[in-house]
Simulated assay, not measured.
Amino acid sequence: MGLFSYDETYGRCEECNQINTGPEWCNACNATRLQKNFKYWTSGNGEIDKFIQDAQLSANKFYRILEWIPYERFYDIEYIAKGGFGLVYKAKWTDGYIQSWNNDKQNWNRCHPLNKFVALKSLNKSKDVTLKFIDEVTSHHKIYNISTRSIVTFYGITQDPETENYMMVLDYAENGSLRNYLDKNYNNLTWNDKILCLYCIATGLHHIHRNELIHRDLHIGNILKFRSDICITDMGLCRPANCESTKDNTYGVLPYMAPEILRGQNYNKAADIYSFGIIMYE
């Protein structure tokens, strides 16, 4: 038997009879629906609006959708931690993410994240967002693939009404960073557990490099431990959101930085591999 076609895998759209591009997902029909809704929302920033709109129009599966999510759609917001360039909160999301179109109800079927929470990652000074910030957020969206679950899920963007900083809406890792998880559970891990952990990290790094991107700040604190997954986060966002990157800017956690980076050379894929080696050593 030959390879399955999209038609055999996902069936056809009930409305236009075109081949579905994903499970219960017709890119042509859903892009039209999403485009009609553009006039009903705005982030207040043209670059962010365009980024979200482009993501919606090109989404060939439900998990490629990004949304502008009004801040009031979150509740039980709780501060978690302070990162190098912003704050992280956890919150419950009233609506949940888009999964498919319901023809009977003429509305989106939505699903809540497994643990009911999402993470809101605030970026300092991002109210004065630059195109470079958009490029970095685009990198995260470009790499994410639900089939590997090696990069943390990215649902959309919101804005803190008090600080006016923009916030990424991401999956919430109930076990926190891999650093926190190992501190509590290291003695209970088997060799198989450790190898699986490293395999997940290597898979995520492979996807980053395959897309011709460099993480530049890979360390055990930028890896999240979910119930059954381990995901890389902070996809190139380890810099001020409104700061243009130059080869003179050096970012990272010192023990994970390759010697050539400390000598002022440019970041490259090999520097990420060095960081992964330090994680293996831990």
Rank of each mutant, 00 (worst) to 15 (best):
C243V: 03
F85W: 13
S122F: 02
I232G: 09
N165D: 15
T203C: 12
S177Q: 05
E162F: 13
P113S: 06
Q99E: 14
R64M: 01
I146A: 10
M257R: 04
N249M: 12
K132G: 14
W68T: 00
G204Y: 03
E78D: 14
S100Y: 12
H207K: 13
H206N: 12
T163V: 03
W68I: 04
D95Y: 09
K142L: 15
L123K: 02
E72H: 10
N109I: 08
N109K: 12
I273S: 04
I65G: 00
N102K: 01
T203S: 14
C231K: 14
D193E: 02
E78C: 15
N103F: 01
I273A: 03
Y71V: 01
I214K: 04
K194R: 15
P255K: 12
P70V: 09
Q106A: 07
M235R: 03
Q35Y: 06
N242E: 07
I134M: 03
F133G: 10
R149G: 15
Y172Q: 11
L213K: 04
V137Y: 00
G252P: 00
L213G: 00
I279R: 14
Y181P: 06
T153A: 14
E282R: 06
K105M: 05
R216C: 15
K105Q: 14
L224M: 12
W68S: 05
Y6R: 07
A55G: 04
R227C: 09
R73S: 13
T148N: 07
D54H: 11
N249W: 05
S147L: 10
E72Y: 11
D76Y: 08
Q18S: 08
K269W: 00
M168Q: 10
L218P: 15
K184F: 00
I77P: 07
I98G: 08
A119C: 06
I52P: 07
L196D: 15
N180V: 01
S139Q: 01
N109T: 07
N192D: 12
K61Q: 10
G11D: 04
G156H: 04
T21P: 04
Y181R: 01
I220D: 06
W191T: 10
G46R: 15
N37Q: 14
K90H: 06
F133T: 06
G44F: 00
E244N: 15
T32F: 09
R12V: 13
Q106Y: 02
S245P: 02
D193P: 03
K269G: 10
P255R: 08
I19H: 04
T233A: 06
L205N: 01
A119E: 02
Q106D: 10
L237E: 08
D234R: 10
E174S: 12
K50N: 15
D95M: 12
